[in-house]
Structures are given as C-alpha cells and as structure tokens.
C-alpha cells in the first residue's frame, strides 16, 4: 500500500492550514459566501439540500485498518456516527458542521487521506476494480497505475478548471466485475 512521501504530507498539511484560515475568514465575515463557495468545494465540502456534506476520496478504493478506524472516529466525533460509501470509492459524511471541517481534514491528513478534488470540474478520485489483486483473470494489478495517475492528476494546474468533471477508473481484468 502506498505511503505518503514527505512532499505528499507537506502538500496535504498545507491545504488543511489554508482551508482552516479560509473557514475562519468565512465565519468572521471577511469572505462572502460567493468568495468562499469555490474554496470549500475545492476541499470537498458541499452545502446540500439538508446540510453540509464532505466527500472524502479513497484512492482506488484501498483503505488500511487504521484509515477505516479514523473514518469511524470522524463519523463519531463530528458527524452522526455513520458515512456513506459511494460507487466511486469515496466516503461521504452528510452532517458535518462548517466550523468542524478543518479539524476533520486534519484528522484525515493524520492517516494520509484528504477531500481534495472530490468536487468541481477537475480530475476526480481515481478508482479501480474492487477485486484488484484478487481476481484470477487479472492481467495486471491496476492499483500501481491508479496511484501514478493519482499523483499526476492531484493539484495538476492544467486540470483544475476543466469544462466538466473527469473521472478515471482502471481495471486489469477483461471481465467486468459483478
């Protein structure tokens, strides 16, 4: 399983610090909602019909036990004790509060996770066959390729403002997984 490099760690931590400051400025009125909306969406925080929603990427659907426990900790601490896994290998917390969002992103960073590029017209979370590494007919394990794509597309300046969102999925099996 991929482990963050020093660069990855510094990048994610710097985004948490940046967003912490942006939330503080929204809450004290320095930023208007129009100014703040694109900033929160770049960090995966939507305001939906009933509440805020934070979408967290799970690159190629791979979670360690430590990461899974941290997602549960986040759900228990800052949400209602649950989250929803999505078909594109994200997890969505449906009841976070805006002032808690920086702490949640900090907790995600503690286990090498983030919510960057889970919203907006950019390259979204790179997904892989959920049977990757376990299927008999697999030509190759898709996860290293997915990791390369994740690194290439994360914060890539050419792909932050695409005409529409762009989603990549990789499989090493010729047969579509059921």
């Amino acid at each position: 399983m991929y482990s963050y490099s020093d660069f990855d760690e510094a990048f994610v931590r710097s985004r948490v610090a940046q967003f912490t400051d942006q939330v503080a400025r929204r809450l004290d009125g320095s930023l208007s909602e129009d100014e703040f909306r694109p900033l929160r969406l770049m960090n995966g925080l939507y305001l939906q019909l009933h509440a805020y929603m934070l979408r967290v990427a799970i690159p190629y659907g791979t979670l360690s036990p430590r990461q899974m426990r941290q997602l549960a900790f986040i759900a228990d601490t800052w949400d209602k004790g649950y989250g929803h896994f999505t078909t594109r290998q994200n997890i969505q917390f449906n009841w976070p509060k805006l002032p808690d969002a920086p702490a949640i992103l900090g907790a995600l960073a503690d286990v090498e996770m983030h919510a960057i590029q889970t919203s907006g017209n950019t390259v979204r979370n790179v997904t892989a066959d959920h049977f990757a590494g376990a299927t008999a007919d697999e030509i190759d394990d898709p996860r290293p390729y997915a990791e390369l794509l994740r690194q290439w597309s994360t914060d890539h300046p050419e792909f932050q403002f695409l005409p529409r969102k762009f989603k990549i999925a990789i499989t090493g099996s010729p047969v579509t997984a059921p």
Partner: peptide, 10 residues
C-alpha cells in the same frame, strides 16, 4: 435558507 455553521434548513 440554510444556517451558515450547521447547514440546517431554517
């Protein structure tokens, strides 16, 4: 509207 901090419908 929605509350700024909680997002609740009000």
């Amino acid at each position: 509207a929605n509350r700024l901090q909680e997002g609740d419908v009000v």
